[in-house]
């Protein structure tokens, strides 16, 4: 392969004048983490609400949950980000639209909310499945003790369902991290974006992408390890999940 490798490139100053190429990549990494965390919080909140809706006996509630999930699942994430970023400000009353367009950090907020809502549909599906997997008698027992539906969810169903869906939630969180890279298309210079920028400035394509790859792998290892730790600390003595 006639490619000129230059691993020292990371320690050479980057064209922005602020630090080295490595600094550039690290700032991208941090932005990826920040965006993913905010998106994940949004995904958990909305996903929990919609997941609960889907599990309720009320036909109307589960229909609303179904529509929500279908809406966010049947459009590419990229298209959804475009809708939030380019289309929404134009469709709002002009004042609100202008405010949105002038929002500082618009790509960041759009990415976090857009990816968050996209992922919330998947969290909802997982949670609804988790709730459905609990024995029917659990809900009956909670009800028979006089707990209201809300209390039953809060104290009995959700704590168990979330424990059960911990493994799929781990991969959904990793998907959230990966999906933030789609926001490169609306101008968010996160890790992939910085790698791309480095490639354009320095022409060291493979070094740039190798570094980004290593960083994504590192995120994966940290998250998987962390979640395994969390899973273990939440494990119930004597109880075998997923039997």
């Amino acid at each position: 392969m006639n490619y000129n490798w230059n691993w020292h490139i990371f320690f050479e100053p980057n064209p922005t004048g602020a630090g080295t190429y490595l600094d550039m990549l690290v700032s991208g990494l941090l932005l990826t983490i920040k965006t993913a965390l905010l998106a994940w919080i949004i995904a958990l909140i909305f996903g929990t609400i919609v997941g609960i809706l889907r599990s309720l006996p009320s036909k109307a509630a589960s229909w609303i949950g179904f529509c929500y999930v279908e809406f966010f699942r049947n459009m590419p994430l990229l298209v959804q980000l475009f809708l939030w970023f380019f289309v929404l400000p134009e469709l709002l009353p002009s004042g609100a639209g202008l405010w949105l367009k002038q929002l500082p950090n618009a790509p960041f907020w759009t990415a976090a909310i857009g990816v968050g809502l996209f992922m919330s549909a998947r969290v909802a599906v997982q949670l609804a499945a988790g709730i459905a997997s609990l024995p029917r008698g659990q809900k009956n027992a909670a009800t028979a003790l006089g707990l209201t539906t809300a209390q039953g969810y809060r104290y009995i169903l959700l704590p168990m369902a979330f424990r059960i869906i911990m493994p799929p939630l781990t991969s959904e969180f990793l998907n959230t991290v990966k999906n933030t890279s789609v926001a490169i298309t609306i101008g968010l210079i996160e890790l992939t974006g910085q790698a791309r920028a480095m490639q354009e400035f320095s022409f060291q394509v493979f070094e740039a992408f190798t570094a980004a790859t290593v960083m994504y792998l590192a995120i994966n290892i940290v998250v998987v390890t962390g979640m395994r730790f969390l899973e273990r600390s939440l494990a119930i003595p004597g109880y075998i999940t997923g039997k």
Binding site: L174, S181, T192, T213
Partner: peptide
């Protein structure tokens, strides 16, 4: 499965 598709596309 650890990598974002966008990065793989660039790769």
């Amino acid at each position: 499965r650890s990598l974002p598709l966008v990065l793989v596309i660039f790769w």
